[in-house]
Simulated scan of single mutants.
Amino acid sequence: MGKTLKNSLIALVGLGAAIASSISPAFAIPYASNTVYKVVKEGVTTVYISATANSRVQLELGSVERSTARIVGACGEVRISVPSSGTFTGLKVDGVAILADSLPSQLMPSCVSGAFSESRPENFRTPNGQVVVVGKTPGAAVAIALPNESTRNISVNGCGFAVLRSTTSTPLPDTFKFASTDYTVSSLPDAGEPPVCRTSNGVSTGYVPSSWP
């Protein structure tokens, strides 16, 4: 491997790390005997899954909190329809937990010139099951978070590993299932430095840090 390429790869895996070996063509890159492992860098955890190169794998993420933005209505209300799961368990609005089952059932009054036709000083549920959160700033955006059962299909690169990381709407789950095995992220072995995949002329080559066993 040329000096320039080697130096660029060292920069990718982190200062002080070195490339111990390459695997070409690569079909999977486990860490020691672990096909699922993690790398924690600057407090950010990334999960690596060793699998057949250029395939796709499905992960069952369990109950995952998903966040969406909603614009507040003219009377300071936020209407939240019944989710597909049928339950509001874990609902949060702007980070504040909403206990939907304890809310009173009330009709949705009309909104006239920025005020409800009937006073609604507290959050409530409508007869059709909607949760209505009141007291917000009209026209502002609020964050609504609600756990949902989730699966994610991710692509395995040409070097034989897939990467699972958090997104802006879905944080990294505490647990997940892959190939019928349950994994807990906090218990995964930490590889310290990640593998690196380089593709040239259609051929993928995987590199592993010298710190790996």
Results as ranks from 00 to 15, higher is better:
A179W: 05
P171G: 09
T137C: 05
R152G: 10
D174P: 03
N123M: 01
T126V: 08
R152F: 13
S113A: 13
A115V: 02
A140G: 07
A191G: 11
V131M: 07
P109S: 08
K136T: 07
A145N: 14
T126Y: 00
R152Y: 11
S166T: 05
R198F: 13
V134I: 12
P147F: 04
S113H: 02
F124H: 00
S169Q: 09
A162K: 13
S187P: 03
T184D: 14
V185M: 12
A145E: 15
A162Q: 02
Y207F: 15
E118W: 03
T151N: 15
D190H: 04
S186M: 10
K136G: 03
S180K: 11
L188P: 02
A191F: 04
S150F: 10
F161D: 07
K136P: 04
V142L: 05
C159G: 05
E122M: 15
S211N: 11
V203T: 15
V196T: 01
T205L: 09
C111V: 04
Y183E: 15
W212Y: 10
A141R: 08
L146M: 05
G139P: 03
T170W: 09
L164S: 08
D182Q: 09
L172R: 03
L172K: 01
S155L: 08
A179Q: 15
G129T: 00
S186H: 01
T181Y: 04
S117E: 08
N201W: 08
T199V: 12
E193C: 03
V196I: 06
S113C: 06
Q130R: 08
P209W: 02
G160N: 08
A115H: 11
G158T: 04
F116Y: 14
C197V: 05
G202L: 14
P109L: 14
S180N: 07
D190C: 00
S186T: 06
P121I: 01
E118D: 12
S166E: 14
D174H: 02
G192A: 03
P173E: 01
Q130G: 07
I154Y: 06
R120T: 01
G202D: 08
P138Y: 09
R152I: 09
F178D: 13
C159L: 03
G160K: 07
I154K: 05
S169E: 12
A162G: 01
L188A: 12
G158V: 07
G135I: 03
R198C: 14
G139F: 01
L146S: 02
P121K: 04
V131L: 07
V133D: 05
P194S: 08
E149P: 00
T175L: 01
V203M: 03
P209T: 06
S155H: 06
E122K: 15
T170L: 15
S110Y: 14
G192F: 05
G206H: 06
V134A: 13
S204H: 01
K136A: 10
S186W: 07
T199G: 04
A143L: 09
P195S: 06
V203Y: 13
L164I: 01
R198Q: 11
T151F: 14
P195K: 02
T168M: 12
F124V: 07
T205G: 11
N123Q: 10
F178I: 07
Y207Q: 02
G192W: 10
V185P: 03
P171L: 04
K177L: 13
N148H: 13
I144E: 10
S113Y: 02
Y207W: 07
T175S: 08
T167F: 06
A191T: 00
F124C: 04
